[in-house]
Design a protein around this nucleic acid. Sequence first.
DNA 1: GCGCCCATGTAACTAGTTACATGATTCA
DNA 2: TGAATCATGTAACTAGTTACATGGGCGC
Lengths: 188, 188
Amino acid sequence: MARANKTKYAILGLLSLKPASGYDIKKIVDESIGFFWNENFGHIYPILARMEKEGLVRKLAKESGDRKARNVYALTARGEREFLEWLGEPADVTPHRNELLLKLFFGRRIDRGAVEAILAEQRRKNQELLEIYGGVARHIDEVGTPEAPYWRFTLDYGIRIARMHVEWCDETLKALKRLSSSKKEKRS
Amino acid sequence: MARANKTKYAILGLLSLKPASGYDIKKIVDESIGFFWNENFGHIYPILARMEKEGLVRKLAKESGDRKARNVYALTARGEREFLEWLGEPADVTPHRNELLLKLFFGRRIDRGAVEAILAEQRRKNQELLEIYGGVARHIDEVGTPEAPYWRFTLDYGIRIARMHVEWCDETLKALKRLSSSKKEKRS
DNA sequence: GCGCCCATGTAACTAGTTACATGATTCA
DNA sequence: TGAATCATGTAACTAGTTACATGGGCGC
């Protein structure tokens, strides 16, 4: 049920908002969905070419200026259909492969201080994210386009997850301290 | 700084707990860290072979029974060193590529009901996870091995994230309803 | 003229998935 | 005897990353 080639759907989605070049796509990804998505040129260009062959996207005529070899793509009807089909399907759960948890799972193999350092660093980074997100939220609320509520939902998700990280780090750090002290008590 | 080939470190970590075969590794992953990690045979076997060539793991002598071609691997000193080195480094933030958020970002392109269905399904699956985790928590608390606290930390993370999902789904569903009603008001 | 951003692309590689082939053991 | 599980592995593939090559346009 879950589909592979997520890059394809991300590109179809962005093109469904407005026509864009490969370069644009990369920029839009970085600037607007960068906190939960990434793409790179080495993948975007070949995939655009393939999608054109498959009739999902088409190259628009060069802009009047024609100043450069800018290949601007737009969705075709088939591309639109395929995008909407994917969009209506339920999304995967199971965000697999969490390296932080993998490290923590093996945490007993290093000294407590090292584990604490990892958690502290994680907490710091997420606190940082929270501050950035605050600014983004203000920005979204200002624009007020019809898409804005949906963008706001994704941002809320990001905020909640960062907050959850901070809280979990705090709790885990506390629990580690308790671990240490109960060890000491046993020794005495 | 962030290292690729996460499978390698997962395998080194598991072997650091006790020697195991490729088959064992797959089973351990599924049964104990399956909620945040996955591996498959087609990757495990080649990578074990490669690590043996690199001197990170070594094949133990066949067990006395010798009943079968079971290749049991153990860490070498070098493997141990490499594992600990990785373990001490801070973990990545940025859990990239969240398909749920990608869909939601484009949510305005489908009707409200379809978005609600996606969220409801997501909520349901996470509620389900929460129940499973409850059982796992009891299990961990019973065993009481020295590793148990660390395993408990990873599980707490899973619980928090599932809870966060449920809450966020609820809030987002509410917000969607508000969106609908404000549209209607404007129309009247 | 130099550095920076725009812009497209290819090549080489690594990681990871899926499907398949093979055969032993265990137990109902 | 036949299904389930144990056990190893290969082949073919897809996705995704990194590094590189190339060149135009713009502003200082």
